[in-house]
Design a binder for these strands. Structure first.
Lengths: 234, 234
DNA sequence: ACAAAGCGGAGATCCGAACTCCAGATCCGA
DNA sequence: TCGGATCTGGAGTTCGGATCTCCGCTTTGT
């Protein structure tokens, strides 16, 4: 518990304060990358319940190696999701840079949903877990003004209903992510259909419907979606 | 394993075939009811992960009592959700009995979402689990023609877009349930806001927006929603 | 060539949920 | 009212699965 792994003082006499992490041996660094990469895949697919043994296996290293490099599961996840979360913020800023207010809002919804639907662990972190609480809270805090701006700008331009609020946006994304979770094993892009549907509810008025980009699941696909979903129990 | 509890032959000589379950002692029957009732509450709240110890505790009986009455968790859940599932079918039929096609579809969405959002275990059973697989599949099979009818009737009447399909309906309900799952601890009725929003995407055209019945979560509420959600990990 | 650093992965440890068991409490027919 | 049948509580056993440790061996780099 609490090893000082990866922290060592560079110069023997050059005491304390700034501890420069001595660079890892080449093979060790290579493994570290493999681990991060494997963890990223495994977590995206299986969510936070994924085992560190799974990660190690996928990375082609032993569990010990994982634990030598990261204090524990939590630390590994923390390291991984720092950039995921900041890329969410980046998405928001890119959407705000979009000149057309409607396109901006839509592209935010689309990109955010794309990010979340592709990564189950990220979704769990943002929606529920007590896990990366601080990181997630920080991301949310950064995001909130951006999304607020995105919404009100679109409202000012008259292309979005007046009663929409900034907090409705993450809800929309979560709902799409839930749909994706269900349909993914069968047909992963199905969430886009529901994004398109949802978008039709946003303008103050409309004279037609936007065509829905993805076909619906057939009843048979529906059936098999439930067979293989994130199995609870047994 | 495999006790014959609750099954006994009434008359000693009157062999085999129709085994009439001798009625339970009065106290035993009372406890059985308590258990079912407690299980219903606990499962609705905590989902399929709920422990039989939880159920026993809520029912005010010992775990042993639960196991004497039901072979195991699975059996208890099976017993409980038989009627939940058939009430879903009933909702569909009631909606179809509604004379106005639009009102019919809307009332189905609303009632189904109400049922699912109130019961986490039911949602898990319908969406994912390998658990009550047969029961759920049967319910789905019964429901499918009803929903199909509900949708096409509304389309024929011209009040719903032509590209909507029957399988979109359960998706809508699932998405609402996901929203509810997130918002419940903070403000349980929030899903109605998103139902209302969703409904605005259904007509072939519209000249205005329907007022949204529930206020959105404030950013602060959003924050605290995540604090207490269905905690994953740790 | 030889420390130092890193490695694998068996297995120790821990945890929590499902389920069992039996000494007593409770019921109910005679 | 009494006695045997039935039922009860909940401590404790079992089990599975996940986290994390440990140490003999391999790889690196000087």
């Amino acid at each position: 518990m609490g090893t000082l792994e990866g922290m060592s003082i560079d110069e023997p006499g050059e005491d304390c304060g700034a501890v420069t992490p001595r660079p890892l041996r080449r093979d060790a660094e290579r493994n570290r990358q493999r681990i991060l990469c494997a963890a990223s895949e495994v977590l995206a697919e299986r969510g936070l319940d994924a085992t560190l043994d799974d990660v190690a296996h996928k990375a082609g290293v032993g569990v010990g190696t994982v634990y030598r490099r990261f204090p524990g599961k939590e630390a590994l996840i923390g390291a991984l999701f720092d950039d995921r979360l900041s890329s969410l913020v980046a998405i928001g800023e890119r959407a705000l840079a979009e000149p057309d207010p409607w396109t901006g809002l839509v592209s935010y919804l689309e990109a955010a949903a794309e990010l979340l639907t592709a990564d189950r662990a990220l979704r769990q972190i943002l929606m529920f877990t007590a896990f990366g609480r601080d990181q997630a809270a920080r991301a949310r805090a950064q995001l909130q003004p951006v999304v607020t701006r995105l919404v009100s700008r679109a409202q000012d331009a008259g292309c979005v209903r007046a009663d929409l609020r900034a907090t409705d946006v993450p809800f929309a994304v979560f709902m799409l992510a839930a749909a994706a979770d269900y349909a993914r094993p069968v047909r992963p892009a199905t969430w886009r259909r529901y994004l398109a549907l949802l978008l039709d509810s946003l303008p103050p008025a409309r004279s037609a419907t936007t065509p829905l980009p993805e076909p619906p699941l057939s009843p048979a696909e529906m059936q098999s979606a439930m067979q293989c979903g994130p199995v609870y129990l047994r």
